[in-house]
């Protein structure tokens, strides 16, 4: 496209003075990025500190930064005096189920959208976009009313179903772009070899798409894991999730506040582990597909 601009600077790269300047620039950039990352971590770190301080100095003003014995009392209380374990299981179960179902429904749909040309696909994709942008309340409040009428209010099932629907547009959109990257010739070759359309999807496309599906899965799982509003409205006691539980612990006594902080830590740590492990993978998966979106 623009060969002259593209090649001219690239010869400059090798010249010594520029390289030195560049490495200094890189170092400055690295320091700035580290500062940025620390700033981004600040709320998390501050909460972690408050949770592990003895209650009487946990939220002192001015803050107490040293001279105390760290304690895990808040975690112990959380474990022993609340149904935290049950909430965590609820959250994980709902997130896992809704992720699996969202993918089982979304992968074929996205494949179809990527292979079926014309207006129908475009309009369906557009609809997905509009669905993605709907104010959560406009679907969740009727869901509340309907789920009560159907007698499924406050069940993991209702919450998982709602999350599948709410996350469906995003997963379809993301997956469609992954499929669009795979040349159509591959399908044709497979079908000439005697595969049916569904066989092609199952035997050729899905194995090829593994990184893309995993990327979409991670996103859908994260959405479901941290979803607050839908869970707040659709759950009560039996299927309460951790984010809802945490907010009900706020605004009460200090030990409960610390427990809320501890719950936030426990909810986030496994997800952070996933994030650290998966980030490289996510970037790779995303750059395979969504870029041309």
């Amino acid at each position: 496209m623009m060969p002259s601009t593209a090649t001219a600077p690239s010869t400059e790269v090798s010249s010594p003075p520029t390289r030195r300047r560049r490495s200094r620039g890189n170092r400055v950039a690295a320091v700035l990025l580290i500062l940025m990352a620390l700033l981004m971590l600040a709320p998390f770190v501050w909460t972690a500190l408050s949770v592990t301080k003895p209650t009487d100095v946990a939220f002192a003003n001015p803050p107490v930064l040293s001279g105390y014995t760290p304690t895990l009392e808040a975690f112990k209380n959380l474990w022993e005096t609340t149904y935290f374990a049950q909430y965590l299981v609820n959250t994980a179960v709902v997130a896992l189920i809704s992720t699996v179902v969202a993918l089982v429904l979304g992968v074929p749909a996205a494949y179809a959208l990527s292979r079926f040309p014309g207006y129908v696909s475009a309009i369906l994709l557009l609809l997905a976009l509009v669905f993605r942008s709907l104010p959560r309340f406009s679907v969740v409040l009727p869901m509340y009313d309907i789920s009560r009428a159907l007698g499924i209010y406050d069940t993991n099932f209702a919450l998982a179903a709602a999350l599948v629907a709410i996350n469906q547009p995003f997963s379809i959109w993301l997956l469609r772009n992954f499929f669009a990257e795979i040349p159509k010739e591959l399908d044709e070759a497979a079908m000439i070899d005697g595969c049916t359309r569904f066989g092609t999807l199952r035997r050729i496309m899905i194995p090829l798409m593994r990184p893309g599906i995993l990327t979409a899965g991670v996103f859908v799982f994260l959405f479901a894991f941290q979803e607050y509003l839908t869970a707040l409205v659709l759950t009560d006691t039996a299927s309460k999730t951790v984010p809802v539980f945490i907010t009900t612990q706020l605004g009460q006594t200090l030990p409960m506040l610390q427990q809320a902080g501890a719950a936030a830590m426990l909810l986030t740590l496994p997800v952070i582990a996933i994030a650290f492990i998966a980030q490289k993978y996510l970037v790779a998966g995303l750059s395979d597909g969504s870029v041309k979106g």
Partner: peptide, 11 residues
């Protein structure tokens, strides 16, 4: 989570 059991509710 499941091993340690649902909160024993010392409250």
């Amino acid at each position: 989570v499941t091993a340690c059991g649902a909160g024993s509710r010392t409250g």
